[in-house]
């Protein structure tokens, strides 16, 4: 078991911040708050610089200036985008509505047929499975169809959950619970992975214990 301490100062800055954040487990403290403020500021600075170089210059200014005759119309959406800022000025808030109206209106119209296709028709198609009369057919296709139908019935609000209808809705809730159980298990796994990631960082990058 050998350690090989990192000579990169950045790694140690990161280790410092990592430990600062973990100090929160003991209780909320200025060190944690400091780390939090730094991450907010650096994150914002990062986003601003990237936005400036890649979006404003790369995606708007460069095409506009190199090919002005065919792209000059880009000035209109640019003005609309700028109008959004009037949201913060109560007297002129209404100006921002034009940009919002354009994006929300077009976005909704855009989404409508596509969501029907991908979110409804295709999901229905994928559930229209043939039922095979075998153990495999029961365990998969049959259970899926029963689960989807009973789940839909559980979320049906025009009829009270009584009698046969209530029993089917009850089957639905069991399916939902098992589904949530799967999500639960996976979420636990994800959160632990993040912690493992930090442990790996300290063990490998900072202390040089692991050689991968």
């Amino acid at each position: 078991m050998t350690f090989n301490l990192s000579s990169n100062i950045w790694v140690w800055i990161a280790v410092f911040f990592t430990l600062s954040v973990y100090s929160f487990l003991w209780k909320d403290n200025p060190l944690f708050k400091f780390a939090e403020s730094v991450t907010v500021g650096v994150g914002m600075g990062y986003a601003m610089v990237q936005w400036f170089t890649l979006s404003l210059v790369g995606r708007f200014w460069t095409p506009l200036t190199t090919d002005f005759s065919s792209r000059f119309h880009l000035i209109i959406p640019a003005i609309m985008g700028l109008m959004l800022i009037t949201r913060l000025i109560p007297r002129f808030t209404w100006l921002s509505r034009y940009a919002l109206a354009f994006t929300m209106g077009a976005g909704s119209g855009f989404a409508l047929p596509r969501v029907i296709q991908a979110g409804v028709l295709q999901q229905l198609y994928a559930t229209m499975l043939p039922i095979e009369f075998s153990l495999h057919g029961f365990l998969y296709n049959f259970i899926i169809i029963v689960g989807v139908l009973s789940g839909l019935i559980y979320f049906f609000f025009s009829k009270e959950h009584k009698g046969w209808f209530g029993s089917i809705a009850n089957v639905g809730i069991w399916f939902l619970m098992v589904g949530f159980g799967a999500t639960f298990g996976y979420t636990v796994m994800a959160r632990l992975s993040l912690f493992i990631g930090r442990v790996l960082f300290v063990l490998r990058d900072a202390l040089g214990f692991l050689k991968i």
Partner: peptide
Amino acid sequence: EMLLLIIGV
């Protein structure tokens, strides 16, 4: 949707 599903199956 449920109706279509049953017919589809």
